[in-house]
Design a protein around this nucleic acid. Sequence first.
DNA 1: AGCACGCCGACT
DNA 2: GTCGGCGTGCTC
Length: 804
Amino acid sequence: MNIASVIVDVPARQTDRTFDYLIPDRLLGYIQPGMRVKVPFGPRNVQGFVTGLKGESEFAKLKEIAETLDLTPVLNEELLKLGDWLTEKTLCYKISAFQAMLPAALKAKYEKKLALAQGVFPKDLSDSVGRLFKDSREIKWDESSLKNLLPSLQKEAAEGRIEVIHEVRDKVRKKKLKHVYPAVEKDELEKQKALLGQRAKGQEKLLCFFIDDPKPIELRELIGKLDISAASIKGLVKKGILQEEAIEVYRDPYETREFVKKKPLNLTPSQEKVIGPILSSIGEDRHEVFLLYGVTGSGKTEIYLQSIQQVLDKGEEAIVLVPEIALTPQMVTRFKERFGDLVAVMHSGLSAGEKYDEWRKIQRQEVKVVVGARSAIFAPFENLGIIIIDEEHETSYKQEENPRYHARDAAIQRAAFHRCPVVLGSATPSLESFARAQKGVYTLLNLPKRLNNKPLPPVEIVDMREELRDGNRSMFSRKLFEKLEDRLEKREQTVLFLNKRGHSSFVMCRDCGYVANCPHCDITLTYHRFNDRMKCHYCGFDEGVPSVCPECGSEHIRYFGTGTQKVEEELAKLLPHARVIRMDVDTTGRKGSHEKLLNSFQEGNADILLGTQMIAKGLDFPNITLVGVLSADTMLNLPDFRSSEKTFQLLTQVSGRAGRHDLPGEVVIQTYTPEHYSVELAGTQDFDQFYNQEMMVRKIHKYPPFYYISLVTVSHAELMKAVSVAEKITRHISLKLSEEAVVLGPVASPIPRINDRYRYQCLIKYKREPGLEKALKSILEHYQQETASGQLQISVDLNPYLLM
DNA sequence: AGCACGCCGACT
DNA sequence: GTCGGCGTGCTC
């Protein structure tokens, strides 16, 4: 077994297979599947993953593995298999699947360098080349600065005086800090203390400290604690009494926070009823998927916590997925309060290094529970006992780049391997999951009542067209405004929700109707008040606001629309005494600012919390008694078959923020389409009826959960090329599929151009098409050269959540 | 992805 | 005649 199969870090169709390498003697018995290695590949070195070991290879002249990058495998056997599954399910490259399962810090960083050959000095080279090495024997390969030296470099390299090095490194280093500890026994420390001179106050303090506690301590901490200088430590180190060493430390994003340990709460009878099947599934090592359908405030989290406790008691581990966890600090707090140091947290707000450290804690079995966003589903636990997905219906569980996986599917895959339950929790389950529960594929668990039987808040729907007819041109209906004033008077809090999607500010000419568009994408530029500029949210293009209309020359050009900033301005005008906290991408950009704003609101530093999607979930503050939705229907017009579902879910979620505690709550929903069933039924919070109605619509239009869908998007800088390739692909797919399948297109994507590339797409709806995956693979293969060069892009999404 | 090998145009 | 354009194909 001295040969390793390796998947190399070259994401291309031609290299999407294993390559065999000889394991050098010094690494024999050490290299295991799942380790990262550095291997020579063509003329350079690349990172690779060992996927298996074998005794012989069909390939005659094998190269040797250059070195290992890990001491222990970063992917265990289960995760290696899961990588294969991901590759198959999403048609991505093996290497992309592996990389998706690991923290970004472990991704290789490549650096091309020039170095002097052994025994060669700058003076041995021609003047121009020799000058490059005057400071160091190694320099970075910098295309631009070396440009005119290329011929002479080539000559020196050919004659062996300099060489090209391809370096492979981890992206992020382990964080190491200098630690100090005694080098001698306690009685020796005592002896040395007696020998110290009168003036050696610092050294005396140090010795006292270590006589008390000889454990290693971080240098800076020691200096701060004893109020001494680094020189005192140096002195003792020199005498050989103390020792210094760089020890790996974890970056702990929550280290400054104190968590008070909390006990499990008593379960209500209905909670008891629901947790029963989950606990027995855990106890019997049985894989089962539960759909925990519980209204907002029905105590789902406590079910999660107590199920996990059972798993921990069994000596197993738990994964909890939450959507964009940075946005729900309350959730993290509850887990930390219950399980303390056993919890690792993984979310997008952490730096690459912090994420890596949390991952290391899991790998080293130092934690038992991970709470995290989508990618936490790949936490390298060995004995999973439960996987929980909170807010199961959230679309952020679907990754919108390769590998385009859905965390729910990966969860079920992993749980089946570990023979443990998956709990999907939601107040508004996705249609897909609910349908599966109805069919008996998932086990449905119901929590129909809020804790303490608090009623759901009454919801009033206001028709904004009527408001307009009655001459109210403000963005607040009279009803909402009245209630706002009332809450201000009573010193209770209000949450105002603005459905921002498709509703951000833009710049328009009031005379000719010209709207500022991105010159590279067919999309309106979004206006940002804080720097008075317009920005494209797809390619990042950014431009100042023109003072005159570029079409007609009119000066009446200004920003338009109802962004949060604009609402804030209007609030300031109408209710100048109200204290408003605004939460959107602009105000929560910086790390931790989100939490700060929420804390400030919780402490009562504001009367109104104004925000977008991000305030729809997880807020649980006792003083919120009014929730206002400013525009309920802005999502309904998006080209997305899930838009009704999303609207219903969002409105229900937001409504759930009101009156969760002692004070009763109220909800006002403003809309231009009060008759739409998703708005109307969100008003009565009638999920069952919504489900029935929406299922009918899906059936008629052949959408999930009745049909599967797949989306192929073709993009190219030339319109004609994009169209013709899309056409060929569509034709090819149609030929390969059965009568039952529907192939739509090709049509221009809803955003027909992004970053100067035209986009055409083909949508496939089908029930059972065993030939589809093969057809798609052969298409990707067929166009591999053109896609490799970047000219042409073909993206395939089996089960897309965004049809853009 | 890189990089080398290989076959046709405008240049000292 | 040669330098160099980037199409094609390989990397254990």
